[in-house]
Nucleic acid binder design. Structure first.
Lengths: 185, 185
DNA sequence: GTCTATAAGCAGATAGAC
DNA sequence: GTCTATCTGCTTATAGAC
């Protein structure tokens, strides 16, 4: 295999899988290399600053998936409830039905990975903003809408933690299913 | 310094601080040595299997703190609300007012740390069991009590994640303050 | 129970051939 | 755009003196 190999998005997808499984510290170049089928040096060709660049690419890809799976459904036309249901489905897909760790857990711990936190802060704020916009549109006062939106994100992240701790994704699915009703009150 | 040095509990407390700051993978022997003031070899004297034994000691210490800060207040005599308020305070102290990461985040990611998950599964189950016992005692049907107890743990863990992502512990404190009312309905 | 010294391996990263 | 070879530093872990 001495040429183009995989399309870049597929490469980044595989990097994402490794980061999700191993965390930032645990994602060694050896593993990243094995997962992509690219030698160490090839990885450096595509990502000159090494792991740091790979993490950035992974976060950029995640961001675009979040936009299409969660934010766009929330901004789409239609009844509030339908949009919230679509959002819940989008979260389910993004987190691979609860099997995948949230990115904050992966990058928020340790020394090196911490530099990416601002990136994630931004995503959280987007979620809260987009959800509360739907609730305000549905007639809720702004303060209540924002609090409920924040509670929804808390419940999603918390249930992901419990899912990993318990070895079962049931709790994650329960939270997703309840989301629309909880948000609409 | 060529003798007893620190009491063992103090050593383990410092190890806990490092694990919490760096995660399992990021907690190198160099850092663990610096934090405790013990040389690498002294650490191996106290913890023959190295990091693995240190992590186990850290989890055991955490477990005993959780018992005295959270589980005992829940099991104490007195009105349900008072016990739930005491529990919320205990969680606040255990998680250092939201500054500290939850242990599942630290040990649940990566390859090596994962072996400790059963330990944490157990703690989660204890929380849910102890909280729902209080709620049942207060007259709630068992299924509702268990669901609310689980929701409470989810909210705590989720708010810790958001606290780290946002750089502010405000959300963690809000959740703790609301806990008793939410649980009692 | 502490220390110094050292081993063996893997981490991230680079140079240069093809 | 891929590869092989190599480098430096840090990782865990051990041996043995005091």
């Amino acid at each position: 295999m001495a040429h183009p190999s995989l399309p870049k998005e597929e490469v980044v997808t595989r990097l994402l899988q490794v980061f999700r499984r191993e965390g930032y510290d645990g994602a060694s170049l050896a593993r990243l290399s094995a997962a992509t089928g690219l030698g160490r040096s090839s990885l450096y060709h595509h990502f000159p600053r090494g792991k740091e660049d790979m993490a950035e690419a992974v976060l950029t890809l995640s961001r675009s998936r979040v936009v299409s799976l969660v934010l766009e459904p929330l901004a789409a036309p239609g009844p509030a409830r339908d949009r919230l249901v679509a959002m819940a489905e989008g979260f389910g897909e993004f987190y691979e039905s609860g099997e995948a760790a949230c990115l904050i857990e992966l990058f928020g711990v340790g020394t090196t990975g911490t530099q990416f936190i601002p990136y994630l802060t931004n995503s959280i704020a987007s979620f809260v903003g987009a959800i509360s916009a739907v609730l305000i549109e549905a007639g809720q006062p702004e303060a209540l809408a924002r609090r409920r939106a924040e509670d929804a994100i808390i419940a999603i992240q918390g249930s992901l933690v419990l899912a990993r701790a318990s070895g079962s994704t049931a709790v994650f699915h329960r939270i997703l299913a309840e989301l629309p009703d909880r948000l609409l009150g």
